[in-house]
Measured scan of single mutants.
Amino acid sequence: TGEEYIAVGDFTAQQVGDLTFKKGEILLAIEKKPDGWWIAKDAKGNEGLVPRTYLEPYS
C-alpha cells in the first residue's frame, strides 16, 4: 500500500508508461523516485509514472 495524493492539475501521458489523470483524482503513490516522477495507481487500478509536482498529500 502507498500514500494517497490528490491531483492539483490535469496531466496527459507524454509517453508510454505515464499515467493520465485529472485534477481532483486521488492517486496512490507506489514508489517515490528521486527524479520527481513517481509510480502511482488510480482508482481504476491503472498504474504508471506521474510528475510529483501535480500531487499534494490527501488527508
Rank of each mutant, 00 (worst) to 15 (best):
N46E: 08
K41W: 05
K33L: 12
Q15K: 15
G17N: 06
A13P: 06
A7C: 09
G36P: 03
D18T: 14
A7T: 10
I30C: 06
P34L: 11
F11T: 01
K41T: 07
E4T: 14
T53E: 15
D35M: 05
G24D: 05
D42P: 01
V8W: 05
S59L: 13
K23G: 04
K22N: 08
K22A: 08
Y54L: 15
K44D: 11
E47S: 11
L19S: 01
D35P: 02
I39L: 14
D35K: 04
W37E: 02
K44S: 12
S59I: 14
E56I: 14
F11I: 04
A40G: 04
G9L: 15
V50K: 00
E31F: 13
K33H: 12
K32S: 05
P34C: 13
E25P: 01
T53K: 14
K32C: 07
G2T: 11
T20D: 07
E3N: 13
S59E: 11
N46I: 08
G9A: 15
T20G: 11
D18F: 15
Y5V: 03
T53A: 14
P57Y: 08
L19N: 00
Y54N: 06
T1F: 14
G36F: 05
G24Y: 05
P34E: 12
V16E: 14
G36Y: 05
G36V: 03
E47C: 14
W38L: 07
D10E: 06
G36A: 04
K23T: 09
V8Q: 07
V8N: 10
G45W: 02
I6C: 07
L19D: 00
A40N: 00
G24M: 03
T20N: 08
T1P: 12
P34Q: 11
E3A: 10
K44A: 13
G24N: 06
L27D: 00
K33S: 10
Y54I: 08
A7N: 01
L19P: 00
D10W: 05
S59D: 12
E31Y: 12
P57C: 08
F21H: 00
G48K: 00
V50R: 01
L55R: 00
I39T: 07
Y54M: 15
T12S: 09
E47A: 10
E25Q: 13
L27E: 01
I39D: 00
Y54A: 09
P57N: 06
L49Y: 14
T20L: 02
G48Q: 01
G9Y: 15
D42C: 03
A7D: 00
K23H: 06
Y58W: 12
Y54S: 08
K22C: 09
V16F: 11
G48S: 01
I30V: 10
T12K: 10
P57E: 08
L55Q: 00
D42A: 03
K32T: 06
W38E: 00
I39C: 09
I26L: 08
Q14P: 05
E47R: 11
T20I: 03
R52H: 14
W37N: 06
E31A: 11
G24T: 02
N46W: 05
P34R: 09
T12H: 10
L49T: 13
E3T: 10
G48N: 01
E3H: 10
I39E: 02
K23S: 07
I6H: 03
A7G: 04
V50L: 03
D18R: 14
G45Y: 02
Y54E: 06
P51N: 13
D18W: 15
G9R: 15
D42R: 02
K23P: 02
K33W: 08
A40E: 00
W38F: 07
G24I: 01
L19K: 01
A40K: 01
A40W: 04
A43M: 13
I30T: 05
Q14M: 12
T1M: 13
G45A: 03
A7M: 02
V50Q: 01
T1W: 14
I30F: 06
G9M: 15
I30L: 12
T12P: 05
A29N: 02
D35Q: 05
E4I: 15
I6K: 07
T53M: 13
T1V: 14
T12L: 10
W37T: 06
D10H: 06
V50P: 02
A43P: 08
G17W: 06
A13S: 10
D42H: 02
K22I: 07
L49V: 09
K32D: 03
G17M: 05
G17E: 05
W37V: 06
I6P: 00
L55N: 01
I6S: 03
I6M: 08
V50E: 01
P51I: 05
E31S: 11
D35C: 11
E31P: 03
Y54T: 05
A7H: 01
I26T: 05
E25H: 07
E56F: 09
I26G: 02
I6Q: 06
K33V: 06
G48W: 03
R52V: 13
L55V: 05
G2E: 10
E56T: 10
I30R: 04
A7W: 01
Q15D: 09
T20R: 04
K22Q: 08
E4P: 14
K32Y: 07
E3D: 12
K41E: 04
K44Q: 13
A13V: 03
G36Q: 05
Q15T: 11
S59Y: 13
F11C: 06
E3P: 08
I39N: 04
E47G: 05
G48R: 01
P51F: 12
A13T: 04
K44N: 13
D18S: 12
E47Y: 14
F11S: 02
S59H: 13
K32H: 05
E3G: 10
G48Y: 03
G45Q: 04
T20H: 05
I26H: 06
G24F: 05
A13L: 04
G2S: 11
Q15R: 15
Y5F: 10
G45F: 03
W37L: 06
W38D: 00
K44F: 14
G2P: 13
K44T: 10
T20A: 10
K23N: 05
K33I: 06
L55E: 02
W37M: 09
K41Y: 05
K32F: 07
L28N: 07
K33C: 14
L28C: 10
A7I: 02
I30Q: 04
P34F: 10
T53Q: 14
V8Y: 04
W37R: 08
Y5C: 04
Y58F: 11
P34Y: 10
V50H: 01
P57I: 09
E31D: 12
